[in-house]
Design a protein around this nucleic acid. Structure first.
Length: 287
DNA sequence: AAGAGGCCCTGATAGC
DNA sequence: TGCTATCAGGGCCTCT
């Protein structure tokens, strides 16, 4: 669920709340995340200072003292919670997109900072933490990841050349992090709707105009979602002004059998599975 | 090389 | 009421 916009919102929150703080203690309750938490994880982080927080596609990057790094991927169900020093929930942080109520289960990692405590919760454990002892190792990790839609490298020539002789459909490519990084299943459907491109269309058959639209709307939609604080698609009970609101802007996602929202189009939103993911599109205006 | 499919995992929900 | 089946999805992996 957390795609680029949601991760960006978390990044902004962390930037406000934990930057320049020193890590006092680290507790790992369950090491079996998507990748096993390394044995030296706690020792490595303890006494290091968080000097900067950045984001690359769906990854959060904690820049630590001595030119070291820790990356966090939220996977499908990962959320970060901050508690203040008295262990009460930090509700002053209005930009957090996840529930302000700390779950009682699946709190796998706790990082005690000078002024607060960071808790990583992840029921499905598709997320992970990974430490890097120098910048070279960090860059090597990101070497296999394609450009973000917001990046200049994601330009018409890059996309056009990438798609030569590619028979796979465009929806799968938008989810392929080697081609473009940061888009997930929800925004992939939304982007293609705005482009009026059928998700099954083979990449090699996309016209230059199609490619221009893909580049343009990828950027526009992700930026708009960031402005709206991301999308929150479940647990509406827990909303207390901390959730994003881009879900209210969805044109096709989870709108199966409803009318197409394009003016003058009388099509219906269709749901089809593409590479094991639900895909929503208008069967009439997306060609 | 490209592409298809499997797998990891838990919680919510549907159907009987 | 309680069981089982299905779905949700990010990314790495193997196999063809």
């Amino acid at each position: 669920m957390p795609e680029l916009p949601e991760v960006e919102i978390v990044k902004q929150s962390l930037d406000k709340n934990i930057k320049f703080q020193k890590i006092k203690k680290v507790v790992v309750r369950n090491r079996n995340l998507r990748f096993k938490i390394s044995k030296d994880f706690e020792f490595f982080l303890t006494n290091k200072k968080i000097v900067r927080i950045s984001r690359k596609s769906k990854y959060l990057i904690l820049h630590l003292s001595n030119n070291t790094f820790c990356i966090i991927h939220l996977g499908m169900s990962g959320t970060i919670h901050l508690l203040d020093k008295n262990n009460s929930i930090n509700n002053t942080n209005s930009s957090f997109y996840n529930s302000p109520n700390l779950p009682s289960k699946h709190n796998h990692i706790e990082i005690f900072l000078k002024k607060c405590r960071l808790i990583y919760n992840d029921p499905r454990r598709f997320g992970f933490f990974k430490i890097f002892k120098n910048k070279k190792a960090l860059l090597k990790f990101f070497n296999n990841i394609g450009p973000e839609p917001l990046n200049k490298k994601f330009n018409i020539n890059y996309i056009f050349n990438y798609f030569i002789n590619k028979k796979k459909n465009i929806k799968s490519f938008l989810l392929d992090q080697k081609f473009v990084s940061g888009i997930g299943n929800i925004y992939a459907s939304e982007i293609l709707f705005h482009c009026k491109i059928n998700p099954f269309k083979q990449a090699k058959n996309l016209t230059k105009l199609d490619i221009k639209k893909i580049r343009y709307f990828s950027k526009v939609i992700l930026n708009k979602a960031i402005k709206k604080g991301g999308s929150s698609i479940k647990d509406f009970k827990n909303v207390s002004g901390q959730n994003g609101s881009y879900q209210n802007e969805f044109k096709v996602y989870q709108r199966e059998n409803l009318n197409c929202l394009n003016k003058n189009c009388f099509g219906k939103v269709t749901k089809k599975v593409i590479s094991k993911r639900s895909t929503f599109f208008c069967n009439r205006c997306q060609k």
